[in-house]
Design a protein around this nucleic acid. Sequence first.
DNA 1: TTGCGTGCAAAGGTTTTGCATGGCA
DNA 2: TGCCATGCAAAACCTTTGCACGCAA
Lengths: 137, 137
Amino acid sequence: MNSRSKYKTKQREILISYFETVPGVHVTAGDVCDYLKAHEAPIGQSTVYRHLESLVDEGIIKKYIIDEKSAACYEYVAPDSHVDAEICFHCKCEKCGKLIHLHCDELNEIQLHLMSDHHFKMDPMRTVFYGLCESCM
Amino acid sequence: MNSRSKYKTKQREILISYFETVPGVHVTAGDVCDYLKAHEAPIGQSTVYRHLESLVDEGIIKKYIIDEKSAACYEYVAPDSHVDAEICFHCKCEKCGKLIHLHCDELNEIQLHLMSDHHFKMDPMRTVFYGLCESCM
DNA sequence: TTGCGTGCAAAGGTTTTGCATGGCA
DNA sequence: TGCCATGCAAAACCTTTGCACGCAA
């Protein structure tokens, strides 16, 4: 509900700085809290959660729901990257828990198909394919 | 872990009977508990959860993780249906929360593609496409 | 009789919320 | 000054687990 940040606070800057140091890495809300606590600048967990929601809305970070039993993951989005071209799909192995990143043009056709035939605008950042990876099959 | 039922108990029969009365409907563990409590036969929630796990393993019901913030959904599988042909995909609207069921052959190609090109065996029952539905776009 | 099944209560983990205090503009 | 932001604690939520008792075979 408080999607947009109105004030520039120290906590917000700390969080953004932290994410900038871990590009391409999936971190959970707990990871963020732990890291900040271990370093110089602890932030209350409710503040962390509230900022994570805002930063997702602003497109500064992405949120991934990888596994329903574990915590949500957040990842920094580099501001100078043209994100549209960087669509990334995820496959999660139900057995070993491995997470596979896919950059595949053919998978983009799924989006087009869902759009044209089913009138559904799929969001690749939130969609995860569940199944079995090669080594677990 | 206790995947297979060894004893035939009253609670197990009640649960199966309940699911038979709601074919094609998604119910949560809480729904089951509430329904049974409102009727003649309440069952302890831990027993419900334990049976749900067993029934999923036995293929009597299917489990869907639709939304990471809400409870898992369970659905009865008719025993006389040839389930292999009944693959069903789900689309979940992130805005209005609507759940859309898709029976589409073209989507089956995703499975084949993931299998042949990425060596990943996708599980349609667990995979949900997130995005925006027609009315929310 | 043997050991699984049951159910209550409590724990588990992640996320949200209430409320008083603190800080930005 | 006037809101918004913060953070602690507690609640909320779904699910799992411990343990003693009950029941199927």
